[in-house]
Simulated scan of single mutants.
Amino acid sequence: MPIGYMYILECGNGTYYTGSTIDLEKRIEEHKIGQGANHTKKHGVDKLVYYEEYPRIDLAFNREKQVQKWRREKKEALILGKHQNLPELAKAYRDL
C-alpha cells in the first residue's frame, strides 16, 4: 500500500500545480475548497491530471521537487505518458 503520492493538478487558468501528500483524495479536496497552496487558492483546481505512488512520503516529496522544476512541455509529456520524450525535453534552453 502506498504511503506517499506525487500529484499534478490542472488549475482553472490552465497552469499545473505539483504537490505531494500521504492522502491524495483528502488533499485534492482541500485544494478544491481553498485550503491548499496559494497557487490553487488563487487559480482554483479543475482536475487531477497525474499522480505517482511511493512507499514513503519522502520519496514522493523528492519527486515533487524534481517535477516542479520542469517546464510545461516536459510536465505534459509525463502527464500524457510520452516518456520517450522526457530526455529531449530535459535539455536546457541554452543547449537547444
Score class of each variant (00 low, 15 high):
residue 87 P to C: 09
residue 56 R to I: 12
residue 47 K to D: 12
residue 32 K to L: 00
residue 53 E to R: 11
residue 20 S to V: 01
residue 96 L to D: 14
residue 71 R to S: 06
residue 87 P to K: 06
residue 58 D to W: 15
residue 27 R to S: 07
residue 88 E to A: 12
residue 56 R to P: 00
residue 49 V to Y: 07
residue 16 Y to R: 05
residue 30 E to V: 00
residue 90 A to L: 08
residue 75 K to S: 03
residue 37 A to P: 02
residue 55 P to Y: 08
residue 92 A to E: 14
residue 43 H to R: 02
residue 45 V to M: 02
residue 27 R to Y: 00
residue 91 K to G: 03
residue 16 Y to V: 01
residue 67 V to W: 05
residue 59 L to A: 15
residue 4 G to T: 10
residue 55 P to F: 04
residue 62 N to I: 00
residue 9 L to V: 06
residue 77 A to V: 08
residue 67 V to L: 09
residue 60 A to W: 03
residue 61 F to C: 06
residue 8 I to Y: 03
residue 61 F to Q: 10
residue 93 Y to L: 04
residue 39 H to G: 12
residue 47 K to F: 02
residue 17 Y to M: 01
residue 68 Q to F: 00
residue 71 R to D: 02
residue 18 T to S: 07
residue 24 L to S: 12
residue 31 H to K: 02
residue 66 Q to E: 08
residue 40 T to F: 01
residue 44 G to E: 09
residue 33 I to G: 01
residue 92 A to H: 15
residue 43 H to P: 05
residue 3 I to Y: 11
residue 58 D to V: 13
residue 87 P to T: 07
residue 64 E to Y: 04
residue 5 Y to I: 05
residue 25 E to Q: 13
residue 41 K to N: 07
residue 90 A to W: 09
residue 23 D to Q: 14
residue 39 H to S: 12
residue 80 L to K: 14
residue 35 Q to W: 13
residue 52 E to C: 08
residue 16 Y to C: 02
residue 2 P to R: 13
residue 32 K to N: 09
residue 13 N to H: 06
residue 11 C to N: 14
residue 76 E to L: 10
residue 29 E to G: 09
residue 59 L to H: 13
residue 40 T to H: 03
residue 42 K to S: 12
residue 48 L to T: 11
residue 15 T to K: 07
residue 21 T to A: 06
residue 70 W to A: 05
residue 87 P to V: 10
residue 8 I to T: 05
residue 84 Q to E: 15
residue 80 L to N: 15
residue 47 K to G: 08
residue 25 E to F: 05
residue 52 E to N: 14
residue 19 G to M: 01
residue 18 T to Q: 02
residue 61 F to M: 04
residue 40 T to A: 06
residue 81 G to K: 10
residue 33 I to N: 07
residue 51 Y to F: 15
residue 72 R to I: 06
residue 16 Y to D: 03
residue 66 Q to G: 00
residue 50 Y to K: 13
residue 32 K to Y: 01
residue 27 R to T: 07
residue 17 Y to R: 05
residue 94 R to L: 08
residue 31 H to E: 03
residue 67 V to S: 03
residue 61 F to W: 04
residue 78 L to A: 08
residue 73 E to S: 11
residue 12 G to M: 04
residue 78 L to C: 09
residue 80 L to R: 15
residue 66 Q to H: 05
residue 55 P to C: 02
residue 83 H to R: 15
residue 57 I to L: 15
residue 14 G to S: 06
residue 79 I to N: 04
residue 30 E to R: 13
residue 47 K to N: 15
residue 30 E to Y: 07
residue 57 I to W: 09
residue 42 K to A: 10
residue 33 I to W: 10
residue 89 L to V: 08
residue 11 C to V: 01
residue 2 P to F: 14
residue 25 E to L: 08
residue 91 K to N: 12
residue 57 I to K: 14
residue 2 P to Q: 13
residue 29 E to V: 10
residue 46 D to P: 01
residue 32 K to M: 10
residue 1 M to F: 14
residue 59 L to V: 07
residue 66 Q to F: 01
residue 60 A to L: 05
residue 5 Y to M: 09
residue 9 L to I: 06
residue 47 K to H: 09
residue 12 G to I: 04
residue 82 K to E: 13
residue 85 N to Y: 11
residue 41 K to T: 05
residue 68 Q to V: 04
residue 19 G to Y: 03
residue 78 L to M: 14
residue 45 V to G: 01
residue 43 H to K: 11
residue 29 E to C: 05
residue 3 I to D: 13
residue 15 T to F: 02
residue 66 Q to M: 03
residue 84 Q to R: 15
residue 46 D to S: 11
residue 6 M to H: 06
residue 51 Y to A: 07
